[in-house]
Structure formats: C-alpha cells, structure tokens
Write a protein that binds this DNA or RNA. Sequence first.
DNA 1: CTTGAAACATCAAGCTC
DNA 2: GAGCTTGATGTTTCAAG
Lengths: 152, 152
Amino acid sequence: MSGSGPLEPLDQAIVQELAADGRRSFTDLAERVGLSVSAVHQRVRRLEQRGVILGYTARLDGEQIGLPLTALISLTPNDPAAPDDYPQRIQHITEIESCYSVAGDESYILLVRVASPLGLEDLLRRIREAAKVSTRTTVVLSTPFEGRSPTL
Amino acid sequence: MSGSGPLEPLDQAIVQELAADGRRSFTDLAERVGLSVSAVHQRVRRLEQRGVILGYTARLDGEQIGLPLTALISLTPNDPAAPDDYPQRIQHITEIESCYSVAGDESYILLVRVASPLGLEDLLRRIREAAKVSTRTTVVLSTPFEGRSPTL
DNA sequence: CTTGAAACATCAAGCTC
DNA sequence: GAGCTTGATGTTTCAAG
C-alpha cells in the first residue's frame, strides 16, 4: 500500500499550498495552517514519503527556454496483438513530457514540447519507430493556462 | 517585451535543475553550475522576474488527494460565429488544470481532474453551459508518466 | 509536537569588469 | 550598469526529547 486513507484537513491544507507555490517557506506554511514550523516540516516530509507529494517542479515558459512548439500526439498500435509496453518503449524520449493511457479510439496520448516543426517531424519519426505505432498529432496554438493547482 | 533572447548556458543549467527539482537548494544549485550561492540566488530571481520561470508547484498523486479521475475534454463551439472568449468563460472552473487552444477538428483541449464519474458528468454540464460548446471526453485510464522536465 | 544547534537562504552594500 | 562577492540576519533542517 502507498496511501493511508484520505488526507487529514491539515495535510490537505499543506498540500494545497504547496501545489499553488512549491517553494512556499515552512514559516509561511506554518502560519497559514496554524502549526509550528517544525510540525509542518515533518508533515511535509511524511507527505513526500507517502507519495502524496511526488515531487516539485518549476513551471517554465516554453518560448523563453527554446521549446515554443507544444503538441498532443495520439498513438494507435500498428499491431493490435503486440504486447502493450508502449510507455517503456518511448520513455527514453525526453521531448515527451506526459504519457496518458486512454479509453477511446487511441491507446495513448502524449504531450510533447519541441523547438520547431522540424523537431516535431523528427520526434514523430522516433516515436513511430520506437513503439511501432501510428500517430495523430494536434498542434497547440496557444496555452490560455496550464498546470493550475486543484481545489481539494 | 518579456524575454531578452535565448538563455545563457548558466541560466539554462539553473532552469533545468529547477525543472527537475523545484525545491533544490541554492547551495546545491551553486555547486552544480559552478557559481557562488548568492550569484545563483540572483540569477534565479532574475529568471522569475523575466518570466522564464513562471512558478513552482508540487506534483501530487491524484489518487491520494481524492481526485483519481483524469480526463481530456475537446471543445467545439456551438456557434462558430460567436466571439472566441472560451478560456475566460471557463477559467473559473477549478477542475480544469490546463487549457490548450489547438489546430485541428476542435478548438480547445482541456485537462481535468475530478473525484468520480458523477463529478465528471457535473463538470461537463458546467463547461457546456459556461462556454456554449459541445464536448468530447477521453477518460484517462492510467498515467505512465507525467510532468517530466524537458532537456534543454 | 517541541527544542535547539548547524546548515542554508536572503538581502543590502560594496566591488569588479 | 550588469553581475559577482561579502557579511549580517532570518529561515530551514534534522536529531533528540
């Protein structure tokens, strides 16, 4: 088992604050949730160990880091009888940010970021070769918002 | 203007480290990129102000925070002649984590997280009413990986 | 959850190119 | 002026209680 039932209200509050600002200080967190700094610190460590908090990441501007082109790629197996190890086959491709197994016409949907149309063309070729799949690509024109933190 | 050309190698290294671990200490960062702690600190603040770093967030386990159901929702306008203000119309709906404007059959694709199928049904109703759109929903069965940091 | 001590982050003033 | 260093102050971290 990895979890221990639903979150206590205090842990829920902590987790929500860290989702909204992953670098929030323990002093801030302590004030907001009404605990001592050390108590909050220990709860955060416990939430990390329990796998409630999987990690922390900086959100980056794709334009400014040289990856201005985002796309969603749907994967359909060429051979429907082949073993379903697609995630393993493509996980080494660093342009793939996220991989979802989905119900529907396709088997997987990938979110990718590349530098240019040529980079996307090359990426698609590598995905098709690595996973023996057909791809359908939807280019992202703009991102009104992304990575918003949930309300618990 | 928000950017000032492409990233210097040092800033690139810092940004990549913070994408991989958003809570990495300045001491760690300084060692890894070969600068003093204060110099790294100032560069990070500058990257935040320039909008290269948009923010920091904790990655959470949907199961453990009570939002085990993820879905991708495609939006198609009911009235193709209506003004395109869909992001504004739906941004108040907190279950929507990301909103992408896309090229292709649909206008937008949303990534959402909810507690249950009933929660998804209710969410779809609210999206259709707020934005006057038709929706097509793809349920996520599992997430082999998500939110990986890019290689710069 | 609290305490207390060592490591770390932060900020401003000054230095260097 | 942009960027780095120094040193003083407040914060984080961890082990012990």
